[in-house]
Nucleic acid binder design. Structure first.
Length: 427
RNA sequence: GGAGGGGUGGCAGAGUGGUCGAAUGCGGCGGUCUUGAAAACCGUUGGGCUUCACGGUCCCGGGGGUUCGAAUCCCUCCCCCUCCGCCA
């Protein structure tokens, strides 16, 4: 969401930012509506003023028992009141139009975001580790099915496509990965572990930017709730409608939750395996910062996510997304891509975004410096730290042995109860 | 799910339909006193929009209505609390 005052003062800059994201100019239309709305506001203001004055005088007239004056004033108010509904309706119409336009516009990209139409224009920021070269590397679904611990058919029978059933060692590995990530982020990086709601209302999704534009990507309950597509929604909305003390910022939250996505429009993409599912689990990172701290926090958050991959000894590269590949609410995004030997390519495993005050405006979350009266909108950031399912995939493909068993990375040993290798159950 | 009771300024808590944007207390800020602090005392202390300013206007959970006039009456939705029922 944008500040109408910013558009009034910097219409060209606003349109230029939109243009960077392939959105046609909107400032002219918005400011035209704004001007009309303000015109009606002024008219309405004047009518209210006259009505209030007359009403006050009526009280006095009545107290004095001045019947004539009472009736004269009453007629005057009646006259004013016949005109008010049209002005009110017009004003509301214009304001609604402005709100509808604004709520559908994506955040403006930061200046240092590369220009481009899609992921082809993303730029590599850094690279870590050597992509593992394996003889006849298998993909994770072949490995998992051979182990008898990854069952897409059973999942499909109860739930349809894009679901998976993990069993035995792989199910445990998923839990170990999540615990390891949570321990790292809470223990080393100061994030507060949360167990947030998975069902949320419209307002929350509007706050983080999934609504009103992306309803088709979400699952809705039979009631008024939606399943979260990411814990970003729950964790960011913790501070909705709050005024925070600036000294207590940044706030850092993390949570391991399932995420639910309809994957509308992804038909045919990544149909095999665990890369793209309707339900997957993810450890999410969210930071709430003062406005001047968000850029530094963005770098820090990305490093927190990268650290997990380093501890797991998984090769990755970090990309800064181009204007065409960024999400709706982001002003700048880093994607972390892990090397998958089975696919012989880098695949996204984390996405860390600085949303600036875009979500804060939608949630009405502000902060106040000590002793100050003035409040300002906070900045919000979110990142995967990491996608647990895709981390499982990465471990399987990178740690596979020729016999189809999977070695457990050292970092996960404390979480696997002595299991050092995942192999076909022998009974 | 049933029956009741509530949602008011940073917090607590008043408010017969007509100078109520709102008493009072706490907290905050400024001052007096003090070597300094505390205590005490005095003063001050919501926000949005609009205006160069004066001012005007809107906001007492959200939305709608009644009225010349609504924090106050009515409808509706949301949230919280108590009791009952059901339940992981």
């Amino acid at each position: 969401m944008f500040d109408i005052k910013f558009i009034r003062d910097h219409g060209e800059k606003f349109d230029a930012g939109l243009a960077r994201r392939g959105v046609p100019p909107k400032a002219g239309e918005i400011l035209g509506l704004d001007e009309e709305a303000r015109k009606y506001t002024a008219v309405l203001n004047d009518m209210q003023s006259r009505r209030n004055a007359a009403s006050k005088a009526i009280g006095a007239a009545k107290a004095k028992g001045d019947e004539d004056e009472f009736n004269r004033l009453k007629a005057e108010v009646d006259q004013i009141k016949t005109q008010m509904p049209t002005a009110e309706a017009e004003q509301k119409k214009k304001l609604d139009q402005i709100r509808d336009i604004l709520s559908g516009l994506p955040n403006l990209p930061a200046d240092d975001v590369p220009q481009g139409e899609d992921e082809a224009a993303n730029e590599e920021v850094r690279k870590w580790g050597e992509p593992r070269k394996l003889n006849s590397a298998k993909e994770h679904f072949d490995l998992g099915e051979a182990l008898g611990q990854m069952d897409f058919e059973a999942a499909a029978r109860m739930s349809g496509s894009r679901f998976v059933l993990l069993k035995g060692g792989l199910a445990r590995l998923e839990r170990a990965i999540a615990n390891f990530m949570l321990d790292t982020h809470t223990g080393e990086f100061g994030y507060t572990e949360c167990q947030p709601p998975l069902l949320v209302r419209d307002d929350a999704l509007y706050g983080t930017g999934q609504l009103p534009k992306f309803a088709e990507d979400l699952f809705k309950s039979t009631g008024d709730h939606w399943l979260i597509p990411t814990a970003e929604v729950s964790l960011t909305n913790i501070v909705r409608e709050d005024i925070l003390a600036e000294e207590e910022l940044p706030l850092r939250f993390t949570a391991w939750t399932p995420c639910f996505r309809s994957e509308a429009g992804a038909a045919g993409r990544d149909t095999r395996g665990m890369i793209r599912l309707h339900q997957f689990s993810k450890v999410e990172l969210v930071s709430i910062t003062a406005p001047d701290q968000s850029n530094a926090e963005h770098e820090r958050m990305t490093e927190c996510a990268e650290t997990v991959l380093q501890k797991l000894d998984l090769a990755y590269r970090t990309m800064v997304l181009s204007t065409g590949d960024m999400g709706f609410s982001a002003r700048k995004t880093y994607d972390i891509e892990v090397w998958l030997p089975g696919q012989a390519q880098y695949r996204e495993i984390s996405s860390c975004s600085n949303c600036g005050d875009f979500q804060a405006r939608r949630m009405n979350t502000r902060c106040r410096a000590k002793g100050e009266k003035q409040t300002t909108f906070v900045h919000t950031l979110n990142g995967s730290g990491l996608a647990v399912g895709r981390t499982l995939v990465a471990i399987m493909e990178n740690y596979q042995n020729e016999d189809g068993s999977i070695a457990v990375p050292d970092a996960l040993n404390p979480y696997m109860g002595g299991v050092e290798k995942i192999e076909t159950a022998v009974d």
